[in-house]
Design a protein around this nucleic acid. Structure first.
Length: 515
RNA sequence: AGCGGGGUAGAGCAGUGGCAGCUCGUUGGGCUCAUAAUCCAAAGGUCGCAGGUUCGAAUCCUGCCCCCGCAACCA
């Protein structure tokens, strides 16, 4: 089975922030899980680099836009690398292959008469050098320049977005174009049914930093129209509608809720216009607040990805972000709570369990499997179900239930008290080690380095599941070599609280999640 | 009345008509294999506010308040 998953292509007007990291980590977890299942996975990440905002930002920093984009895109790449993200490609909308495919597409749409010349009328703020929507204005004035924008008309090209409204609604209702969670589907259907989609102006005369329109080079292409195609050019599509790459369509496109609208209007309309299959599923997740406040640079309460990586390490960062609140909802985080969770789940939970079992097992023990551990089987069953439903928070809960079960089991059996019944001791430790072995596989998509460390300490190699092998407890095959225990360093070093630092961190802040 | 989501213990959340729950934190006790870890127990809540329906409401209805996202040609 193929599994093609995408993150949004992030807009490079700013440094990568926690929201970008969150989506990308989730995508990586799902990618790694599908690889574990032996699916043929393609994981796309990338950056969106054209448009007025970039042009202006580059100008502020006195750089040419390409250099500016190169630097920012590198920051994203480096962060993904540091977070152990296993994306198969990193597509940039300034890549040559993207630009040339996009130009072909626009020509096709033009030849199909789905693009026509017209006149765009909008409220233009001279100070901002851009059109404003009514909702961006405060009392009719630009909030930045305190001036009334002028009503300006401009020749431009339109895409017949309105033609596709009905078809999009139909595809969503028939679940041929799935949107999850259900609230987001309702939201999309809400605005699609209620508001009329106007034709979309796709050309920009004033924006220089963009891909030229193939049939009229005095314009560049509006970013949203071209950027979406990176989901296709990233898998090496050349712009030929008859030659669609095998990985198409995406099985899953992850994104935050702010870009739901464009992904359920412009994006499917463009694909329908070209007779290309729609993505199978969009999954929309929520936003963070920090101590109940929006993150914002102005308020200075931003938690940066590197703050977490430096403090907790890569694996713990991946875990902590996903273990905070259900994937798909909004949630609140704080440094204080992250620290608590780090200590309770990782240090006291997983780390401590591995340490206490291995200490006993390292002394004196011979492995034999009873081959049928109900707890492990039950956990795998729920694990697979929640993973399938993209309930990553629930998956982690289920895995941690098994950890808790092991702690209680030890308390009940008290293996450290057994002095003259080696058979019983071996059985108890074997049960525990099999559970830890399975735990290590379960956490592999979430915390690949920790997983590897556990295998090393168990003296066992995990080489993945074989093709078509059921993912579940199979001790005889996989553990035939037995355990060669060598307890190592603790998996997670304890964090000791520093109340003063925490208090400083908790000062109100806000963060901006625009992509 | 623009659309969607949310407001439940100190914190984060679950609970859609039948004794108000989970995790963390806090407090007390047990244990000693383990990173002051772990196990058992306890304390802690006018379920946003105000009305209504019902034998019975966190849950259903009405009104209101607060928070988040969207309200496209910014991305």
């Amino acid at each position: 089975m193929k599994f093609y998953i995408t993150t949004p292509i992030y807009y490079v007007n700013d440094e990568p922030h926690l929201g970008h990291a969150y989506t990308t980590i989730a995508a990586d977890v799902l990618s790694r899980y599908h690889r574990l299942k032996n699916d043929d996975v393609f994981f796309l990440a990338g950056t969106d680099e054209h448009g007025l905002k970039i042009e202006q930002k580059a100008q502020e920093e006195e750089k040419n836009p390409q250099k500016f984009c190169d630097e920012k895109a590198t920051k994203f790449k480096v962060l993904w690398n540091n977070l152990n993200i296993t994306n198969n490609t990193f597509i940039r909308t300034t890549d040559l292959k993207h630009k040339s495919a996009v130009q072909k597409i626009l020509q096709i749409l033009f030849d199909k008469k789905l693009i026509y010349k017209g006149e765009y009328e909008g409220l233009y703020c001279v100070g901002c050098e851009e059109y404003k929507t009514k909702t961006q204005l405060i009392a009719g004035k630009c909030p930045l320049h305190k001036k009334m924008p002028e009503l300006v008309k401009e020749d431009c090209y339109f895409f017949q977005l309105s033609n596709f409204q009905k078809k999009i609604i139909e595809k969503i209702q028939k679940n041929e174009f799935k949107i999850e969670p259900i609230e987001r589907k309702n939201e999309a259907l809400g605005f699609l049914k209620k508001e009329k989609l106007e034709d979309l102006s796709i050309s920009r005369k004033k924006v220089k930093w963009g891909i030229p329109l193939p049939f009229d080079k005095s314009y560049t292409i509006y970013v949203w129209v071209e950027a979406f195609f990176s989901y296709l050019t990233g898998i090496d599509w050349q712009g030929d509608c008859k030659k669609i790459p095998n990985f198409w369509p995406p099985d899953l496109q992850l994104m935050a809720k702010d870009i739901l609208r464009v992904h359920t209007t412009i994006w499917p309309a463009l694909l329908l216009a070209l007779d290309i299959l729609l993505p199978n599923k969009l999954f929309v997740h929520g936003f963070f607040t920090i101590n109940g406040q929006k993150m914002s640079k102005t308020l200075g309460n931003v938690i940066l990805p590197y703050d977490l990586i430096n403090k907790f390490g890569v694996d713990a960062t991946r875990y902590l972000l996903l273990a905070q609140f259900p994937f798909g909802q909004d949630g609140d985080i704080s440094m204080e709570r992250l620290e608590e969770k780090y200590n309770s789940d990782l240090v006291n939970g997983l780390g401590n369990l591995v340490a206490r079992v291995l200490t006993l097992a390292e002394r004196n023990f011979t492995y034999f499997s009873n081959g049928n551990d109900i707890e492990i089987k039950k956990t795998w069953k729920e694990y697979k179900k929640t993973m399938k439903n993209i309930q990553l928070f629930e998956t982690l809960k289920i895995v941690w239930n098994l950890i808790s079960f092991c702690d209680k089991y030890m308390e009940k059996e008290k293996p450290w008290e057994i002095k003259d019944n080696p058979e019983r001791l071996n059985k108890i430790l074997s049960n525990l080690l099999e559970r830890i072995y399975n735990l290590a596989i379960m956490i592999l998509p979430f915390m690949p380095e920790t997983s590897e460390k556990i295998f090393t300490q168990l003296g066992i190699k995990f080489e993945g599941f074989k093709k078509n092998e059921q993912i579940e407890f199979i001790p005889h095959q996989n553990l035939v070599q037995g355990f060669k225990i060598k307890k190592g360093e603790n998996l997670f070093p304890r964090k000791h609280k520093n109340k003063k630092t925490l208090k400083q961190k908790n000062t109100k802040i806000i963060l901006d999640f625009k992509f």
